[in-house]
Design a binder for these strands. Structure first.
Lengths: 344, 344
DNA sequence: TTGTAGGCGTTATCAC
DNA sequence: GTGATAACGCCTACAA
């Protein structure tokens, strides 16, 4: 089955290759009405589909957008256990497709660096979710294509940026607990790294305590990884050894699920004995039992925004590149059934 | 920032373009030891990365694999609410990357057909999950590239195939319920379409009933969509109006979550009043409360297998293409806490 | 062993 | 309006 090319169309229509290319690229003003229809006919007849590859070679584009997402520790699979990422990708894919782009999904590997795939594939742009080593960002700069970062606090105006105010989120979550009468509030969290999302939430937690005259007790922060298992063991621990803790703030819904499980396994009830608030509002949050009270970030909107910003940057190749744009998605508490009002 | 090409490397190393190309393509036997090292040095020095695009043009490859996944009704987003797909994609991406391929994620749209993206991008292969219209499969055949179908019952040996024995799965689930003493078993399911995954599970359900001398009651099947919401309303309905039903088989874990929610909202308990078994064993199944009893299909293995089969097909371009391979992933009941043994 | 040159499918610049 | 033709970056006979 021979591949049919622009040449075939030209021959079939009895015109030059250039003519075909013109109508293909909307420069129909340069071609007579007559040939236009002849060409269109041939195209349909031959079922011709232009090769993006070939076009890319000359135009130096690929209509491809890289989406980098975190991987599990062992670098074996993408971090998809957390639906957070899939929801975002879904959003990204949707808008990007509108503009004729496709996304290429990749975890960054040991051997192949990001830069490799970016330049070898001639990516038109990239969206990077999560936090990585300095090295990655350096590579990104070298790649020299539009990039938007999601949920990153690197302060580099080579990149556009979309995220949320994580500090505020942590603050809101904790305040919500406090307003419901809780005084001893645990924090179950991943590793608190400088300038990381998790650190900000932690900071918000501390600020809320402080503003309300509560004592910050380091023993109440259970720091390990943003995972269900860590949540689960922490939940059990809290239920067993910290009877004074009446509420916990988990830095992600997945963690919160674990916490609730752990608490229940220790024979206590959520929210009767211990209240729990999560963060993210992944779609599972409202399906969970009991439905999870959480800090809602509009994941879908976040992905959409990132994609829109990227496309914009790609298409304005010429104009003043408004690189260092920064977009903050608003936050909001969704009060469901895992936080109980303490009366006393 | 000028893009550096093979030409630059050649010049820098003081050799011909061909020589560089040779060492790049492992035909080092055609080049002297001396030039090899010179070339390697230049490559590293210049930080040269070959363009897959350009290579693709001549070799007629793209090192790109299309992954087609279902979309929501409105065609606006990918069906990622169900983590089932993300888990599989993660698996696919992992193995495919090992071989230097990348995956391109796309929903099939109204305008752009699958064929469009396949030929315009020059895909090396594709993995298609789910069920589509005849038209898609026709297009696939035209595309004339290796394709493996996941969870499809189209009987066409142009395609390799990986799936599970859905009929058996439905049978196992139902039998498990029966073995636990249940007699009136509801089925909550998506649309039962000819030759669809869901139909098979339904058939298995019927067979189990029959083999155990139970009456198949059409009123007990709640057919609508494979979704949480449908599960939820069905659960409520069953709890309210069908007191004789003591167990339900939900054709997907997501549905089961909904069923359980619906039942609880109607003031009944799972599994005390009504038992529920799901299907898939997505990772959320064991995190749910109560942990879901379900038919485990090894989602990760499924994706991996599909990817491996595809790669194999792609790389054997020459040899007898073993297209119509079919791989069945084994099934197994995972007994957790949503099915109760009835004593009577 | 090394280099020259044609070609992969497009686009875009020129002459005609 | 139209059509050669030179790129784009790379691979690979074929010659040298």
């Amino acid at each position: 089955m021979k591949k049919i090319t622009i040449k075939d169309v030209a021959r079939n229509a009895g015109v030059s290759i250039a003519a075909v290319s013109y109508v293909l690229n909307g420069k129909e003003s340069k071609v007579s009405q007559d040939t236009i229809v002849r060409i269109h006919e041939s195209i349909r007849h031959l079922n011709y589909i232009p090769s993006i590859t070939a076009r890319g070679l000359v135009k130096n584009t690929s209509e491809l957008i890289g989406v980098i997402i975190p991987q599990t520790e062992d670098h074996k699979q993408l971090v998809f256990e957390n639906p957070f990422y899939s929801e975002m990708i879904s959003a990204i894919e949707g808008v990007v497709r509108e503009y004729g782009y496709h996304i290429i999904l990749a975890g960054v590997d040991k051997g192949k660096t990001y830069l490799d795939i970016s330049t070898s594939r001639n990516l038109d742009g990239a969206i990077i979710m999560g936090i990585y080593s300095e090295q990655l960002y350096d590579e990104c700069k070298q790649a020299n294509i539009p990039i938007v970062l999601i949920d990153s606090y690197v302060n580099d105006n080579s990149f556009a940026n979309v995220g949320i105010d994580d500090e505020l989120g942590g603050y809101l979550a904790t305040k919500h607990l406090i307003e419901n009468g809780h005084r001893n509030i645990g924090l179950v969290t991943g590793m608190i790294r400088k300038e990381g999302v998790v650190e900000k939430r932690f900071l918000g937690y501390k600020r809320a305590l402080q503003e309300n005259g509560l004592f910050y007790n380091p023993d109440y922060v259970f720091e390990n990884s943003v995972s269900y298992v860590h949540g689960r063991s922490s939940g059990a621990l809290i239920a067993d050894k910290f009877p004074e803790i009446t509420a916990v703030f988990a830095v992600a819904d997945m963690v919160a699920f674990g916490v609730i499980r752990g608490i229940k396994e220790s024979g206590k009830d959520v929210p009767h004995d211990i209240s729990v608030i999560g963060f993210d509002d992944i779609s599972m949050a409202h399906m969970f039992l009991p439905p999870l009270t959480t800090v809602k970030q509009q994941i879908f909107l976040k992905g959409e925004t990132a994609a829109r910003m990227l496309i914009e940057q790609i298409q304005e190749k010429n104009g003043v590149s408004v690189k260092s744009a920064r977009s903050l998605i608003p936050l909001e508490i969704v009060d469901r059934e895992t936080v109980r009002k303490l009366m006393n």
